[in-house]
Amino acid sequence: MKITVLNAGFAAILLGFSGTGNAQTNLGIPSSLAVQADSASYADIADLVVISSLIVDANVRNLRKIPPEQAVGVPANLQRMLVEADIVTLIRGQEGVAPRVRFLLDIPKDAKGKIPKLKKQRLFLLGSSVAGRPGEIRLSRPNALIQWSAANDILVRAITKEAVQIDAPEKITDITSAFYSAGTVIGEGETQIFLKTAKEQPLSLSVLSRPGEEKRWAVSTAEVIDESATAPAKFTLLWYRLACELPRSIAAEMVEAADSEGAAKVQADYNYILDSIGPCGRKR
């Protein structure tokens, strides 16, 4: 039996929304283990979605301790558990998923050596299927869990919907070059910054300055910079890539400038972009 993928449509990201529609939230699961139900950031959820080929909404059914002799290398402050969970919804996964899954989880112990109660908790599990082992999941990270809440449900589905698109923004790995072009009048000019992405997807930034006007910056995902390009909306996957992956400064050797004034304008415009994007917001 396989559960089919449901549409991940959504109306809008609810800014500042704290979903408490599930009575099983805030039961002491540490943020080091799972993204929290009532204080998640877009970046914390996106970090997990973009690296996971399988995403499910599930209820924890049972947990069993793994004997120490079978958990070699696990630190003393962690307890390795075999977790069984019943699937509520498959959000991402081309091959479907079994109605019940199991996975290994290293859970932090408290000062008394106890672990938080996960049984009956509703969680998003983010990882991949294990080849040749139906019903087995390997988490993308040791803490690739997200507590269920109405707000988190919206975010997981919205980010997944963007991430599965053919032209989804890829990871930014570096700045390849940047230059400044002066305009025909004093105070007019344009900075262009070209970025390197994981799969060589074209990505560039531009800042246009005109006398008496506010600077305008834009991002282009085409080979040729489109004059209609704009800055990305906040809390979208493209915004996340820029906010969380852009270097904090441009290396001097990447700036193609004929003089120090041009190089200074590039750096100033790049700082303007970073300030406009705002902080990544990652909490863990």
Rank of each mutant, 00 (worst) to 15 (best):
L208I: 15
N22W: 13
I146P: 00
K112E: 09
A178Y: 00
V50T: 14
Q36A: 05
S149V: 08
T173I: 15
T184W: 12
A263I: 10
P67Q: 01
N26R: 10
S31C: 09
L6Q: 07
L90A: 10
M1K: 14
A229Y: 13
G189R: 03
V5R: 15
R138P: 08
I115M: 13
A252H: 14
T197V: 03
E162P: 00
L54T: 14
I91L: 11
I225M: 10
L238F: 06
Q70A: 12
G132V: 01
A251W: 04
K120F: 13
G16T: 14
A71K: 09
N271V: 05
V130I: 14
C280Q: 06
R284N: 12
S228W: 11
G21D: 07
V83R: 07
G96H: 02
L78N: 01
S181V: 15
I13W: 09
M254A: 14
Q121V: 09
Y240W: 11
P108L: 03
G21F: 07
A243N: 05
I159R: 00
L27I: 15
G73E: 04
I115Y: 13
I137R: 07
A12C: 14
E84K: 13
P134H: 09
V101N: 00
Y270A: 04
C244T: 07
A98I: 04
R216Y: 06
K215R: 08
R64M: 15
T236I: 04
F124N: 02
V74R: 01
E261K: 05
F124G: 01
S209M: 07
N77D: 13
S220M: 10
A182S: 10
L27D: 12
S52F: 02
G19Y: 09
L105N: 02
Q201S: 05
A151V: 08
N143W: 01
A263M: 12
A251L: 09
G28D: 10
S149L: 07
I154K: 11
A58K: 03
I87M: 00
A151K: 07
R64W: 11
K112G: 07
I51M: 10
K120P: 05
